[in-house]
Design a binder for these strands. Sequence first.
DNA 1: GTGGTCACG
DNA 2: ACGTACGTGACCACT
Length: 845
Amino acid sequence: MKLLAIDGNSILNRAFYGIKLLTNKKGQFTNAIFGFMNIFLRNMEDVKPDALAVAFDLRTPTFRHKAVSYYKANRKGMPPELAEQLPKVKELLNLMGIKVVECEGYEADDVLGTLSKLCSDSGNECYVLTGDRDSLQLIDDKVTVILATNKENIYYTPEKFNEDYGFEPVKLIDLKALMGDSSDNIPGVAGIGEKTASALIKEYGCIETLYEKYEESSLTKGVKAKLAAGADSAKESKWLATIVRDAPIEKELNSYKIGTPDNGAIGRMLTELEMFKLLDKLGINAAESANSDPDVKSEEVAAISVEVSDLTEHIIGKIGECEYLFCDGKLSVRSGDNVYIAENESLILTFFASNCDKATDDAKAHYRWVMARGGELKGLRSDAAICGYLLNTSASDYAVDKLCAEYGVHYYSENGDLAKLLSIRGLIVKLRSEIESEGMTELLEKIELPLTEVLASMEDRGVLIDRKGVEDFGVLLTEMIEETQQLIYDEAGHEFNVSSPKQLGTVLFEEMGLPTKKKNKSGFSTNAEVLEELRNYAPIVDDVLKYRHYTKLYSTYVVGLLDKIAPDGRIHTWFRQTETRTGRISSTEPNMQTIPVRTELGAQMRKFFTAGEGKTLIDADYSQIELRVMAHLCGDENMMEAFNSGEDIHASTAAQVFDMPLFMVTPEMRSAAKAVNFGIIYGIGAFSLAKDIGTSVAKAKKYIADYLAKYPKVNSFMETTVDNAFREGYVTTMFGRRRRIPELSSSNKMLQAAGRRIAMNTPVQGTAADLIKIAMINVYNRLKAEKLDAKLILQVHDELIIESDIACADRCVELLREEMQGVYDMRVPLAVDVHQGKSWYDAKG
DNA sequence: GTGGTCACG
DNA sequence: ACGTACGTGACCACT
């Protein structure tokens, strides 16, 4: 028989500290459970045991085996985020038919010690899984310890142990008796560290022999004196370091065989914890187990019997409302309890163009499909993914089966291929009612759903690229890169991969001896901020910065963009509407929201984004929209006045903070004030502000204090927002968009501070996102209504770009300005800069 | 797959 | 004592 014995506490701890905090939407912490299960399942596969025991510490004040109050006394108690996960892991293991072993007065490693001895004595194989090196003392011919480190599992057999330590496993106890272990409060012998202890054990084997012979030995006087002074402590320490091997637990190995799992209950539990990957791994269907909840009545979970028939024009004419799915040219429609299918393109176009009310799960793709064929999609009333997003902006995706499981909606997996279609109605009813009760119906109907069509149209139109221009720019960059690379090799004295931060670090910090500034997980940082500080030390630094700049432009923008040019000569980015926590949209393949502009060389890229023949690009961007949103939201008179009088806001801030008339503000003061303004939007911190403007933390603190004194309502707005966020667990934008902030309930101060900044930033960034979305919809509708030969093609957070026929460009400029400025009646004006030109570079003004 | 780096608002 | 501003996506090296 093969037994796998697991140190539950040790593995759970590793999992907790190794994975960033995760929560489900109720705010329950889940990272340790998730990590534990992953480690557990991986080792189950590797070891394939016949029997299994997971041991946990159980210590009570009334019965103490060892001197518990002092043993491990200095270990900090479990943080609450971990403590709340402990019972859930035990429950989960029980449901899986796995024995959880706890023994009053004993720790998990004592249980492992007992179990492993049991195996060893009876000639059975034992694998001990733990993250704690202490347990290596248990190794023998029958007992292998699997040490789970952050990177890998190390299998410790007696041979492997001997290789690493140079003595037998059981002597690890003697090693500890000498060197001690501060984390376990084992004192050891004062003054004896790991090296000396290890040498002594290799020489003498155990402390008993050592203490018999050391006085006569050739050890130094100093060591002898230390040993003499620490003799009692060494004996005491040996006792403390010895893992118990006869704890009073179940001794019949057969009783540790794995029982029958309760898949329904496991499914429900993992669904509640939102661990869908784990469900997959265990081969449990999330939706099915939600259905198997005994509380749900049987008629509700019955399969629907549906007639599937071909869709016809006649049927389309009679549909009032329906749910549909459309994928790979196949359409399926559910109306009432009838299901229709169609693969004929013109019929599908007829369906999309019909006026019936439609609900689906990925409408943008469908808009794209009809637009590519010159058709129309009308009557869209709901999109499950978008509903899911509004209810929780932090999920990783919004697939129908997952949403069903999450919101307790029956997923008709009994109905095979039709499951998704049949389930979507109930899902949408549920999601919409949640949205209604959270006050987001208008956000859904007036903003998000109409926006889907706008984004589809923007993707569909795309932006024209001057391919030749990009290619030539690439050739130029290649030459510059080669030249710079050669300079770097010359200065380093040899060739290496400049793109490897590791190799670069070796060259700069070890070979050339430049001072290090900042550390990261893998060594010393070589990022731009660090290199900037090292510029004066050696010319290589400047060349590396240039190299980075050129290669970034080349690989991400030249190669990356050329790769994405469609046969029509245009780039059709994907705008993602359910991606960001704040309500912004994002852009991928390629990301059109990060096209270079800040350096002159980089900005050249924008010359290759052009208007077609007889057309022009019109670019309009909001100036300081987030600060204006802040002024509106908090209603601070001073801040509103600055905007209402049309002042340069950063200069005006400087005048306030430095307490002087506007005309005396220097460029340096304006620039510092600008940094403070950004800081305010991001959720200010003195340290980062100081770093940003290159001043002392004390001065930064004073800037912030002066700022908040001059704009008192900014201060009170921030405080109220954070207070509310603590109370409610979420923040909202002006248009009711929500973002949950589980970080606020963390006991980790860093995380909680991050939560506060999120709470301060999200209403501002999110409201700005809401505003530009509304403007986009209005612009789109007006371009259509006024039949202008012009289309929105890009959005970059506070900037919209239209490709317009030259003939109507002036009207478009006016229209854009009107719709963006007038998007919503605010307490301060929204300023918009508009320019036009043949390329994006020219249209930026 | 993760981490480092850097492009943008 | 520790790490440090909000929100993204792409590419490279390395495991």
